[in-house]
Design a protein around this nucleic acid. Sequence first.
RNA 1: GGGGCCGUAGCCCAACGGCAGGAGGCAGCAGGUUUAGGACCUGUACAGUGCGGGUUCGAAUCCCGCCGGCCCCA
Length: 831
Amino acid sequence: MTAVDGDQVASDSYDARALQDKWQARWAKENPFTASEDPADDRPRSYVLDMFPYPSGDLHMGHAEAFAIGDVVARYRFQLGENVLHPIGWDSFGLPAENAAIKNGTHPAEWTYANIETQAESFKRYGVSLDWTRRLHTSDPEYYRWNQWLFLRFFERSLAYRKEGLVNWCPQDQTVLANEQVVQGRCERCGSEVARRSLNQWYFRITEYADRLLEDMEQLEGNWPERVLLMQRNWIGRSTGADVDFTIEGRAEPVTVFTTRPDTLYGATFFVVAADAPLADELCTPEHRADLDAYKEQVARLSDIDRQSIEREKSGVFLGRYAINPVNGERIPVWAADYVLAEYGHGAIMAVPAHDQRDLDFALTFDLPVREVVETGEGDPAETGTATPGEGRLMNSGPLDGLAKGEAIDRIIEVLQERGTGTASVNYRLRDWLLSRQRFWGTPIPIIHCPDCGEVPVPDDQLPVKLPDNLRGADLAPKGVSPLAAAADWVNVECPACGGAAERDTDTMDTFVDSSWYYLRYCSPHTGDAPFDVDKVAEWGPIDQYVGGVEHAILHLLYSRFFTKVLYDMGLVSFTEPFRRLLNQGQVINQGKAMSKSLGNGVDLGEEIEKYGVDAVRLTVLFSGPPEDDIDWADVSPAASLKFLNRAFRVMVEAGAATAPGADPSQGDVALRKATHQALDKITVAVEAHRFNVAVARLMELVTAARKAIDSGPGAQDPAVREAAEVIAVTLSLFAPYAAEEGWERLGHAGSVAIGNWRTPVPELLTQESVTCVVQVSSKVRDKLEVAPDIEPDELERLALASEKVQSFIGGKEVRRVVVKAPKLVNVVVA
RNA sequence: GGGGCCGUAGCCCAACGGCAGGAGGCAGCAGGUUUAGGACCUGUACAGUGCGGGUUCGAAUCCCGCCGGCCCCA
């Protein structure tokens, strides 16, 4: 039925597979979506980017949605005639490749690059308007050497540093885990219980940028989803309060605690240090040592989330020591507990049980005193078991008595400062970014450890520090230290500083480092002497539209923002925020649930494309609802999309057969012309507002109007039909590129429909000779009038009151008021 | 516990505070066309916007409280 003769597809019905083959080959030859670097090219530039994929196999439904959405944005910019940068690459370092290599006795690169090739072919088939000349893979040495270069610049600025600290440790995978990889205290990958372990690890000092990460959100307001900004704010968790120094009996230096409620200082009745902080060990008296050690073992098995959960029974150990409250000299017991985190604040708190629920729970569990210092008008917490964190006048607080919260905070900070025992302070929930990983398939950290010189950076001219290529399969199996440690030839090197025997750092970087700056590399992907060409980044950056899943709301997006600010401080980029606008697409689910093997409800993208074709799958994804909503595949119909594509295609074919390009539309049917231009206007507005489902609905209406014009109107030879068909081809190109390209060709045009063909509606065709005015009597619709769009309100009111129907409903009652919203509505309010 | 988002026909979804004869679509029903199936064309029924208040000439839309679902932070 389908005759493919060389480049020509003969069928007059829409044949998805034939068109895919034909146009994919054409695009591959002509590269219509390559960004221009010609200095003489003065078209406006735009940069549209989807979050790059991890090569975990072939593309799946999630990619289909994200890239369909990003492609509409990019293709719209192409249609407007802009010089668009729309690149692609792969986030190709990571643990799955390593696990596959261990299982198969191979090298992670084999699995990784095979998957990348598969995905690349799938992207081409999917018809995404990508610039293939800028393709990058983060696992290429040409890419990851710049991770190392950037690390060294961070190191020079003290933004990369190594410290001993408690980390999440998975005993099964034998590696540290990032916080996001710990779910309910268990390793998300293997399900084993995560332990806390103290290790010497590398960190990026993101906390130094906490305030700027907060302040610069102003630039993103209105352009990023509000909930992402909210999540980042919460994650950073800035809180203001005071640092207060408590003297500890038998310790020379006082211990500082951070509190958001320094006004309640007189209500502190005990003192708590994090059980796993070094301070707990230090303060513990010999007779309590055994208790503490046992307790610590128990605590090490809990996640931070569990530890802070209010529902949990409070636990702790008295350390046999006393602290002195700096304002009233009171001697209060020092406890170690797990509900205080070693990393938050200073790892110690003053406990005010009357006004903090967790402190109160602890006090009631261990029979510690509770003293109210804020008069809240609620019941005594010691009796009710409910702390009163609200506001009120201070009491039992010496000089603070009678003050309100704000006044009391200001006053107590003054007092503390005068005595030199405290100061106003800001605390953050955000912690420094732990970047070491005991994994193989990542970027080696370019540091050499020398017994004499310490941490010595690998000189720039020795970058990249490449991964050794002689490790395979079992060599990569987890053994508690990085697999790189086993590569003796690789590890043992001369110290670049003194020439003595030294060893390479054997950890690799968190793969979030790779994705924190890849969008800059796309501007000059082949630059050999720098991570990116500063001038090119100035020309293209920042990204106008970024598209990706909300699961990256905090990590990737926060890290990228951090990197951009550091690079700004280094003078390498001219902007402080990398992504001007952000769109979070929803998930593709099935039958109300996330797709999973165990549920057996997976939908395979390749199979859907086999059945319905690329255009229909893309159209289904875009038409199903707003892009940020989840799509339940059980609720949508790719078959219906295919049906629509057939209708649209036939209109283009029939119009193409009946008239030639250049037919004067002003000679055509006015009613259809109006429908065409109104559809064009509405589609434009909807696309710009990212309401792609609405844009498709308007396009469907236009196809129906064109169909009627052909069948029971002026006929296919009318120039207005051609105009409609051309607008259909141009607008359809955003959603269903194969059908649009073929339709455009059938309409007699050479070249791709996709570039620079968007049209501006003719204003005269958007106005209507008359509009329907609704006339209400006391807000109920009683009559309708056909009036001129520019009718004067006075005239409209006169006409409305002259209506017989309206008069009959007024029925002699008093007209209290007449609301006139010309030309659409009149409301006659009667008594 | 705190904060946020969302509830519109059987289903997915539209609707600058102004006609819900719902924009569009799915599934349904009835015709037409087709050798048949499918495809195609035409026409249709179905909700009064989760519940209760409030503001307003007028509320799906704004405000308050409840119910249900989802998300973030504790």
